[in-house]
Amino acid sequence: MQCILRIKDDGQGFAIDRDSSHNGFGLLGMAERAEIIGAQIQIHSALGQGTEVAVSVNQQEKPS
């Protein structure tokens, strides 16, 4: 089973390729937490077009 969380806004957006050390640790922290639980994170953003963050995690099924 897969669970997907998708959060999207229509705000100002930002350049993802910028050095995160100048912008704080928000995106880095999200990526680290996703890795801890075995999830994948995708961040899409463009100036003037908003941002979308999607996290997907596969739940391992318990043996019957």
Rank of each mutant, 00 (worst) to 15 (best):
D17K: 11
T51L: 03
L28A: 11
S45K: 07
F25E: 13
A31W: 01
E32H: 10
T51H: 01
V53H: 06
I36A: 13
M1N: 07
C3G: 11
R33E: 07
R18Q: 09
A15V: 15
A54N: 01
A54W: 00
G29A: 15
Q12L: 06
L47P: 05
R18H: 02
F25P: 00
I41F: 01
K62R: 03
S45V: 02
M30E: 02
V53L: 08
G13M: 05
Q2G: 00
G48C: 05
L5G: 05
R33F: 12
G38H: 03
T51N: 04
G13D: 01
A15L: 10
G24Q: 02
R33D: 03
Q2L: 11
M30F: 12
D10R: 14
Q40T: 06
I36H: 09
E35Y: 14
A54G: 00
Q49Y: 10
C3H: 12
F14H: 03
Q60I: 14
H44D: 12
M1P: 10
M30H: 06
I41S: 03
R33S: 12
D10C: 11
M1D: 14
R33W: 08
V57Y: 12
I37V: 15
H22K: 15
I4F: 03
G24M: 03
I4L: 11
I41G: 04
A39D: 02
A15P: 05
I37C: 07
S20H: 07
Q12M: 02
N23K: 11
T51Y: 03
I36K: 12
A15E: 13
D17A: 12
A31M: 11
E61K: 15
K62W: 07
S56W: 00
L27E: 04
L27S: 08
K8S: 08
Q60N: 13
Q60E: 13
I16Y: 02
F25Y: 07
D9N: 14
D19N: 13
M30V: 11
L47F: 04
V53I: 15
G38A: 06
Q42D: 03
I16E: 01
I7K: 07
V55Q: 08
V57K: 14
I43T: 05
Q12I: 10
K8D: 00
G38W: 07
G50K: 09
V55C: 09
C3T: 12
F25R: 11
S56K: 05
A34W: 04
D19I: 12
M1V: 12
G50I: 07
N58Q: 14
K8Y: 00
L28T: 15
C3W: 09
D19T: 11
E32T: 14
E52V: 15
D9A: 06
R18F: 05
G13N: 04
N23L: 15
A46L: 03
N58I: 14
E35S: 14
I41A: 04
Q12E: 07
R33I: 14
S21F: 03
G13E: 01
L5D: 07
K62L: 08
A46G: 00
A34E: 02
S21A: 10
K8A: 05
S21E: 06
L28R: 09
L28F: 05
L27R: 06
I36P: 01
